[in-house]
Design a protein around this nucleic acid. Structure first.
Lengths: 242, 242
DNA sequence: CGGTAATTTGACTCTTCTCAAGAGGCGTGG
DNA sequence: CCACGCCTCTTGAGAAGAGTCAAATTACCG
């Protein structure tokens, strides 16, 4: 796997899919070169979302599939009683929007965790494009099943003790950042403790305490939202990965 | 919505998709009549699984998408430490197998909870069939996103208290059985208490105690694996559905 | 009808939550 | 540049929900 330069270094210009440094992570990953050009002409590029802004709310009409280009975002489900659950943290190159595909209405909200850019594949373009690029439908199916796989992992994780969940979460984030050209051992949490709690099913105080515990065990270093992984082996053990 | 006769009443003969009483639930639901016939010719029908038998194990090569025709089954994820999580209970007309589509290798095991019949759409037939029936890929995408929606609900549920989860589970089962022609108020749990616990993230003793509590509250009647819903409103309140 | 598996019930423990109070950080405006 | 206010984070103490261990009862299969 090639290592990409950190996304922050990328100049703020409209980059065609074939020139985007996310080509090997994003939707084009499994497409042929010609198909990527085809895709590139239809994708709406470089829209911006400021921190805290919402791209779509739950209940809103399904408008298409999106790809995050930079920054980060959270996919949030809210139940009848108003309790939020963060279903996933979205990083550059990852697709989202599948939560609206079946019902034609979004089940979750998508909220930026920092200033972020994204591309849009409008639902109205989806059908004609599928005809032009026959393999696209299958790739979308694969990506949706991939997200299902992640949900399965999370469901399994939800039955494990709090510390394992938090350690697994940190390891997962680290490796996903690494794929995007950032160092594995050091990254910035764009989530608050409350958000981490809503993601892992923990009270924010528990998140804070567990981070403190991992720190005093010498496994990580916590400076506000910046996390340093000092002892990867130790962290894996804490995550219950023997 | 039309009500279908109970599946048990169905004679044990090989029924074409267009004559199957699951037409309005199963894969053909959103297909045109001609396409259903096309599908029917390729689907391998009426395979049988005895109680406790496994159709595929986690790690096994992806072989295709399946539809349950009768009986019931559980989709089980096992983590590195051997802890099982029941991801979903599969009822007649529901599709499964998506857990192997991305990695070409199943992430979960599929185990029959009672004697069950199922149909198979082999992965080798999937591509040629997708060319013959262009809408099929999109339907599969929709179904996979539908399962994703369910996983999202479960993830949100996993943060709610035990009684709410159990009550929601009973209501969900009841309405899914009802769609299949069974009475809403009375159904047979094909899962053990242990299985229910593995599904909801509870100890089997907790499941037993909570069922007892709902029973003494006059909300349900429990006779082993047979459940009677006596007070639907009360059950909905217990499930936290105001 | 015996044996095994499933279920129920009780007592106790422990993880995690809730409530509360205080400290730290950051942006805005004077 | 500093101060104020707000939001976030930390830390403590007590409470509660759910888990574990153990034993008795019941149901089911051959």
């Amino acid at each position: 796997m090639t290592v990409h330069p950190p996304l922050r270094a990328q100049p703020f210009v409209k980059v065609a899919c074939e020139d985007c440094n996310l080509t090997r992570i994003c939707l084009p990953k499994d497409l042929e070169d010609e198909d990527i050009k085809e895709l590139s002409e239809i994708v709406r590029r470089d829209r911006v979302l400021q921190k805290g802004e919402t791209l779509y709310w739950a209940g809103e009409r399904f408008s298409g599939i999106y790809a995050l280009k930079s920054g980060s975002a959270k996919l949030v489900h809210t139940d009848r009683q108003g309790r939020d659950t963060i279903i996933s943290v979205v990083l550059p190159g990852e697709l989202f929007g599948f939560d609206g595909l079946t019902a034609k209405e979004h089940r979750c909200a998508l909220i930026a965790l920092e200033t972020s850019r994204y591309c849009e594949l409008a639902s109205s373009d989806l059908e004609p494009l599928a005809k032009k690029i026959p393999s696209l439908q299958h790739i979308l199916l694969e990506r949706s099943c991939e997200q299902m796989d992640q949900a399965v992992e999370q469901l399994a994780a939800s039955q494990r003790p709090a510390e394992e969940r938090l350690a697994s979460f940190l390891l997962d984030l680290a490796s996903r950042y690494q794929r995007r050209g950032f160092p594995f051992e050091s990254f910035h949490l764009s989530l608050t403790r409350q958000d981490i709690g809503n993601h892992l099913g923990l009270a924010l105080e528990t998140v804070s305490r567990l981070l403190g515990r991992l720190e005093s065990a010498g496994i990580i270093e916590v400076k506000g939202k910046r996390i340093q992984l000092l002892d990867i082996i130790g962290l894996k053990i804490a995550a219950g990965q023997p």
